[in-house]
């Protein structure tokens, strides 16, 4: 769970706490298919996935990996302060991958009375192969009220 955090606690360059997920199993893709409603067989059927060129079979939903990034963010910054969250899907996440989510604050500003911080985020596997890049913006409370 995320502890209270204030605008003054965060500087440009502050690192988001790292989150490690995995190694990933197909069972999680099947559970995520049921939860999200995305039943594309690319994520649940090894034979189908191999037939379209995925060497290890079924691959993770991009939105599951975005979900990992969302977990990393809201374990650090309370969910209610999140204003914007965007990702680009850069690579395929396969069974057996261990995905590490990292982030770094790139901007801090006061705009229309809101204390905004923007943080760039990345999810990559153990070999450094990038799965997702993106960013989020949060509006934080100030210690000065």
């Amino acid at each position: 769970m995320a502890h209270e955090i204030f605008f003054e606690d965060i500087q440009v360059g502050t690192q988001m706490p790292t989150l490690v997920k995995g190694p990933l199993h197909k069972l999680q893709f099947v559970i995520y298919a049921g939860a999200s409603g995305d039943f594309n067989p690319l994520h649940t059927d090894d034979d189908f996935a191999k037939s379209v060129g995925m060497p290890k079979g079924a691959i993770a939903h991009g939105m599951l990996v975005m979900g990992f990034v969302g977990q990393a963010i809201t374990s650090w910054i309370p969910r209610k302060y999140l204003k914007r969250f965007q990702v680009r899907f850069a690579g395929v996440t396969q069974q057996g991958d261990t995905v590490t989510v990292t982030g770094k604050v790139t901007d801090k500003r006061v705009e229309a009375g809101e204390n905004l911080v923007t943080c760039e985020v990345t999810a990559a596997d153990a070999t450094g192969d990038v799965k997702v890049t993106g960013s989020f913006t949060a509006a934080l409370p100030s210690r000065n009220g």
Binding site: K21, Y32, G34, S36, G67, G70, Q71, S75
Partner: peptide
């Protein structure tokens, strides 16, 4: 499903 056990 994400594995996010944040109690909120």
């Amino acid at each position: 499903a994400i594995g996010d056990m944040n109690p909120i």
